[in-house]
Design a protein around this nucleic acid. Structure first.
Length: 272
DNA sequence: ATTGTGGCCTGCCCGC
DNA sequence: TGCGGGCAGGCCACAA
């Protein structure tokens, strides 16, 4: 599902919209409208159309799983806005009818424009859409980036140490907390912890300095390696993430435990 | 304040 | 063969 790796691919796809002018808001699904940073001014379909139509895409940025498009101002707006796009677990970004990601876990392989929950048309005739069968994604104006922690590709060792300090919460729940570190989802978290040899339910503050360092190295290297492979579902432990699965490292029977409300697969032999 | 839980949404898969 | 229950997890509202 879309974790930071997939959303980074969407960001690159979105660079194809740079400099293009939005002519119309063709489709918007009320389920996906979120409130932006200004709580007194929630995102509505009308507000979205007002803000988007006539503006031009200036930049495509990403923090964690949040994609942001900076838009220019237009005649009827005092200033440009930021369009925030979230993809839930089944959302794709489709630009001019094409998506870079075809294989996405836990969703249909069908590619149906009926699932476009949000779509704009550019003046040149092209389109950009969030295609999301499950409707778990969303659209908002001026998203509050301050609610997110540092992106997992930018986090430092000392920031990670601070994230884990003084908390009895499971380490996996902690690194998936988007307000502390942004971008790590369930599959990435399992892979990171499997590589680091740390059990997902270990209390965050119980990690020694050496283990914090090992976790830090694993976050950085796992994100980089799976980015090269092209997806958060392409980790080494993925093949064992099912009943009867055996640890690819040492052959032990994998265990599954709910941690932070998420299904977690881990090896009882080398993850402590 | 922090932390945990439940529910949203819907396609798909399994068992009857 | 069709049907229904369970499952997947990002995110948020809500409770303790």
């Amino acid at each position: 599902m879309p974790e930071l790796i997939e959303v980074e691919i969407y960001r690159r796809t979105a660079t194809r919209t740079l400099g293009r002018c939005i002519e119309a808001l063709e489709q918007v699904d009320a389920f996906g409208l979120r409130s932006g940073s200004d709580r007194s001014n929630p995102t509505t379909a009308e507000g979205l159309a007002d803000a988007l139509v006539g503006s031009t895409v200036l930049a495509a940025r990403r923090v964690g799983k949040l994609l942001m498009l900076d838009l220019s101002n237009h005649a009827s707006a005092a200033k440009g806005v930021v369009l925030g796009l979230r993809f839930g677990m089944t959302g794709r970004l489709v630009v001019d009818g094409k998506t870079e990601i075809n294989e996405l876990l836990y969703t249909s392989d069908r590619d149906d424009a009926e699932w476009d929950r949000f779509r704009v048309r550019f003046a040149d005739g092209g389109t950009m859409a969030v295609r999301d069968p499950r409707r778990l994604g969303g659209v908002e104006l001026d998203p509050d980036v301050g609610r997110l922690g540092p992106d997992a590709t930018m986090v430092t060792r000392s920031q990670l140490r601070a994230v884990l300090a003084d908390s009895g919460v499971a380490v996996k729940a902690r690194i998936m907390d988007q307000g502390r570190i942004a971008g790590i989802g369930n599959l990435l978290a399992d892979e990171i912890l499997w590589r680091a040899g740390i059990a997902p339910m270990a209390a965050a503050r119980s990690l020694s300095a050496n283990r914090v360092t090992r976790l830090y190295v694993s976050i950085v290297s796992t994100v980089a390696e799976l980015t090269d492979r092209g997806g958060s579902h392409l980790g080494d432990v993925m093949e064992a993430r099912h009943p009867g699965g055996l640890c690819p490292r040492d052959g032990a029977a994998m265990r599954t435990t709910q941690v932070g409300g998420r299904t977690s697969w881990w090896c009882p032999k080398h993850q402590r």
